[in-house]
Design a protein around this nucleic acid. Sequence first.
DNA 1: CACCCGGAAGTTAT
DNA 2: CATAACTTCCGGGT
Length: 467
Amino acid sequence: MKLLPVSLPPVAAMDRLPLSLPFNASDLLWRYPLGFPASQPPMSPIVDFKTHLPTSLTTDPRVWSRDDVITFLRWCEREFDLPKFEMDMFQMNGKALCLLTKSDLAERCPGAGDVLHNVLQLLVRDAQTLQRCLPSSPVTPTSRHHYRPPLAGACCLTSRAPVSPTLCTTATQLRSAPHPPLTASLVSCHLILKLTYSVDSQSGSPQHAELVTAVSSYHSSGSNSNGSNQSDSDDDSYQESLQQAPPPSGSPPSTPAPSLPPGPHSPGKDHATAFRPVVRDYFSCDAPETNTNGRLLWDFLQQLLNDQTQRYTNYIAWKNRETGVFKIVDPAGLAKLWGIQKNHLSMNYDKMSRALRYYYRVNILRKVQGERHCYQFLRNPSELKSIKNMSLLRQQMSPTRPTPPPVLLPGPGMSIKLEREELDGDDSALAPTIDDDELPTDLSMSPTVRSRPMHFPPIKVESSDDK
DNA sequence: CACCCGGAAGTTAT
DNA sequence: CATAACTTCCGGGT
């Protein structure tokens, strides 16, 4: 009997991707999530079973015909060594199948209901996620906008009823077509916001108005986003229209760059066979639960930093990719982008940098001392995602959170900085070697977590290309 | 004055 | 409802 596709994969499978190792020679790939296609991290067991779906089936079970349902059930019998299904009990299309509860399924196929239910749930959830994922720029709103029901008017940008083969074509084209420059992304953002809000009968609401003006405002400020002061007070310059707004300075012309995960997807049946493998190249879409998709700040920064066409180098750029050191070139501009991403339109560098500082305590980031706007990633993206998984797993598997090991608090007069300098030792290491179990992922101010001292002394970085 | 730091409290999505 | 991950504000240091 094969591994059942249950919701929670074994911890060992999730937290030990090859790339999550401490930084040995082969791990220099760690700053290059976009280099993965050549050496993809292995798929999680959850996702893996989908690769074996009959090619005649789309990945979205909700669009299956009756025949598809039968095909799927036959496949499940084989794939999971299930007892033979009574096919008369499944004279329904995929949509109906998906509506069956676990107990419904258990009635229809005793002993296999759970498996069937899990498989279907995973397929549905994945399909839903992929639909939400359509806009691929990191500078687009995530969760709160895309979790709304698909909207006809927005389908070209966000999602569409799952059956459309045209979307499949569109999605493929989107991936292969020249990637829109930032301006286009923001216009898309604007359109998505407008359309999704109008669904809620909120068009014209203060929030709606604010969103639109904020994007416009960003465009107008983009022309002079040279790192100079551009704080909250620029919210009063909304005059420029989106169409007239110039792209951010130095924004390169459109270039092919299907770089920003996740890619668009729809399971149009005719295209499913050819389409499915392509979609899986975007590993961030492989595991919906772990796809932060730019919602988290570190992920957002990584996406900007690793943009294949380097569209965001005027905002943020690697200083040393190997060591994870990067520089925020345009603090105000980057903060704006982050604000748009999170729909916190009064975001500024002060606030964003506070969020960055919270990463210090969990060893995701550290400051490059003496270098303005320079930070260093201490963990690669795959590690961070793995850690996130572990954290989730822990919460789901144990009713009580394990208490962190006792840590000596620095005395009242002792600053953390001093302690860091005293620690010393593994400074020469390219990157820290911490047991994942030690790494807190909770950024909250909980005293149980906060007391952990930093392990790494501040570093100096060669600043040849920086003043 | 612009960073940078971290405490404290609040917010939002999950 | 609990929690994670910020967001917002701020006083203090460089």
